[in-house]
């Protein structure tokens, strides 16, 4: 596999976590423009853990994702009652606050003779864990896809449980959901924490793959992309957002002809899809149809 291809695939995989985190909230009916904050919190948190404190990668990632999940849950407590535009603006404001705080975060310590740590808007260099431990690009890509598989599998299973049904009910209409005995507030905080953790996994992977992060990377455009992937790919299943990522990064970014025009083409594509397929390519009806077809061909095969 060429380095270029590995790079593109790794990118797709990491951004997919962001898309999935936005998707979890979209399912519950909340449009967040702030998922990049959790991506950033975990990128910094895990980077600090491995590069400054010398923690192993798995522990650093766990720590970063846990921080992101906690932050998301804390944000959800006051924002769970907001809807639509109000929720979107609140999440965006929080993410911008995180970005500005990271710009002010300067904290370096001496690690084996070099000063390492975040330096405000200059960024955070030398998150070199995977190079120091001879983890190859392919191995890291496999790690990304392994974790992605776990998350997608977990979400797909969750969608079939009572909790999954509750989240969808909340996404459709909170009042009847509450009337049927669903604890809407608790479910929304849970969904937020889960979305924070998922974004956090992506952020931790990202920091370690590119070894250098800076606050400007985690601006609102990152969040908008994460959100758009879910809208393009569809809300019928957790695979939908992945399709959105593959379309954008795998296709638009990789096809040379679009160079320089990618954002324009992407924007146009989003607008077009929202008009012709308001609930994305893999919407509920399509998923339902595919699943039924699979079941039928399963019967035939037996």
């Amino acid at each position: 596999m060429s380095d270029y291809l590995i790079g593109v695939l790794s990118n797709i995989g990491m951004i997919a976590f962001l898309a999935l985190s936005a998707y979890v909230l979209l399912v519950t009916g909340s449009i967040s423009f702030g998922q990049q904050a959790y991506f950033a919190i975990s990128a910094y948190g895990s980077g600090i853990a491995t590069a400054m404190w010398g923690w192993p990668l798995w522990l650093g990632m766990l720590w970063g994702a846990a921080l992101a999940g906690l932050a998301a849950a804390l944000v959800a407590v006051p924002t769970a009652r907001l809807h639509g535009l109000y929720f979107a603006v609140a999440t965006l404001a929080f993410a911008e606050m995180v970005r500005l705080l990271l710009q002010m975060l300067t904290w370096q310590i001496d690690v084996d003779g070099t000063l390492i740590g975040p330096m405000g808007s200059e960024g955070f260099r030398e998150i070199r864990y995977i190079y120091a431990h001879d983890i190859s690009a392919v191995q890291f890509m496999l790690l990304i896809y392994g974790l992605l598989g776990l998350v997608v599998g977990g979400l797909t299973l969750m969608e079939r449980t009572r909790l999954g049904l509750a989240l969808r009910m909340i996404g459709e209409d909170e009042i009847p959901a509450e009337a049927l005995g669903v604890n809407v507030a608790a479910c929304k905080i849970f969904a937020a924490a889960l979305s924070g953790i998922i974004a956090g996994i992506g952020g931790a992977l990202y920091a370690h793959l590119i070894t250098y992060i800076e606050p400007a990377l985690f601006n609102v455009m990152l969040g908008v992309h994460g959100l758009a992937y879910g809208l393009i790919g569809g809300l019928g299943t957790a695979v939908g957002p992945l399709l959105g990522v593959v379309l954008d990064i795998g296709f638009l970014e990789s096809v040379r002809a679009f160079a320089g025009y990618r954002m324009i083409v992407f924007g146009g594509l989003v607008a077009l899809l929202l008009i012709v397929r308001p609930r994305g390519l893999l919407d509920e009806v399509t998923v339902h149809r595919i699943v039924r077809r699979l079941i039928r061909s399963d019967h035939v095969a037996h």
């Binding site: 969808r168 009910m169 459709e172 209409d173 009847p176 959901a177 009337a179 609930r279």
Partner: peptide
């Protein structure tokens, strides 16, 4: 309770 107006989960 059968709520007013908000009867079903339409996409379910």
């Amino acid at each position: 309770l059968v709520p007013e107006n908000r009867l079903t989960f339409p996409e379910v």
